[in-house]
Design a protein around this nucleic acid. Structure first.
Lengths: 201, 201
DNA sequence: CGTCTATTTGAATGTACTCAAAAGCGGTGG
DNA sequence: CCACCGCTTTTGAGTACATTCAAATAGACG
């Protein structure tokens, strides 16, 4: 039943939020009431280039990826999102402008989504959620800082090893060409990195 | 007089904050009372590798830069901060752990600094500042997202042109080798980029 | 003026990409 | 169940991008 699934998703969402802030039962109920359950199949899009990103997504189950397509048609992976992560196009969501990126499912995926208007009102009604998203943004900053540092201080081989060290499961969930597009290298070059790695052993 | 300078800095800080949230006079007074004025000369450090970053800095006047030094001794510029910008080592500040980065002044610089304990208490006393820092973090995210995208989708030449297009004054305030270290290229290569650019014209 | 550091220049090298072809792998239909 | 199709990965050769090293020039500062 869908109602049962929504209840389960509510629980996961509350568990996630409760890691950072304490909520009353009333706050919890109101908060989850603002989210809609949504299911997508592999290769389906949650957002397509040109659309305005109307939601922030919280992944209940599955695996999502956001990417940019440049003029020559090459994909560049901005982020991926496992269970218990958030994903969105912040720029489009915040400024209500057409998105330059796509968000796609790589597995059968269940998300909870919230609209901008509902979220803005939530901040006004319960300022504790300003705090929650401050902490969420802060953590995202820390991750992004590290990625920038890796990008400017490491070569492709080092970035690849740092990625698999940080996310050991990523190679089983994401095709090599998408990992390459996250690292900022070509699939061909990633293949060479992996070959020379196994030769060393 | 220092008291006069502090009053002036208070005004600039309040103007900055008021772009994003509305504050009562009482909130303004309390807020600025938590900040200390601090002046540094060119080449002086506000934070050194190994120290815990005790403050967040708001630049009143001057120019700061944060950078990481890797094992071979190469500098990698993480961020710079003009007037009306914030700078800190978020990772060290948030988790009270030794910093891996340095923050240095490139000009005679005046900052307003706030300690973590004071900031944490401020969030509790006036949740409106949760909102302010949520918005601040959000904007920082947007900038970082763009930098990540540039890093994975552009070559050095393109990144250089994107940087000067975004910050036209940067070349007059920052040495070429520091710009190179921000872009993730060597000073030698940046010199070549600039030469070939002027040849084309 | 002299010293120190930054920038430029050139040559050689290494890193990563493009193009093209072959091999591998998964799904689909007969 | 297997043959075929489409897509991903691998491999190799040639090329472009970016670095290292070293030396020369230019700038900044006392």
């Amino acid at each position: 039943m869908l109602a049962l699934e929504k209840t389960h998703a509510d629980t996961l969402l509350i568990n996630h939020v409760s890691k950072r802030i304490n909520l009353s039962i009333a706050e919890q109920t109101h908060f989850t009431s603002l989210f809609t359950l949504r299911k997508v199949l592999p290769k389906q899009y949650l957002l397509q280039q040109g659309e305005i990103c109307k939601y922030e997504f919280f992944v209940i189950k599955g695996f999502l990826r956001s990417f940019f397509v440049d003029d020559p048609g090459n994909e560049h992976t901005l982020n991926f999102a496992f269970e218990d992560w958030w994903i969105s196009d912040t720029k489009s969501f915040v400024h209500l402008q057409p998105s330059e990126i796509n968000i796609i499912a790589h597995e059968q995926t269940t998300v909870m989504q919230i609209e901008k208007q509902a979220l803005d009102q939530l901040y006004l009604d319960f300022p504790i959620f300003d705090r929650f998203w401050r902490l969420l943004n802060q953590n995202f900053n820390l991750a992004q800082n590290e990625r920038v540092l890796n990008a400017i201080s490491m070569n492709g081989t080092e970035r690849y090893h740092a990625l698999v060290a940080k996310y050991p499961t990523i190679e089983s969930r994401l095709a090599q060409k998408h990992i390459a597009s996250y690292l900022g290298i070509t699939p061909v070059f990633l293949s060479m990195i992996r070959r020379s790695q196994s030769n060393v052993k």
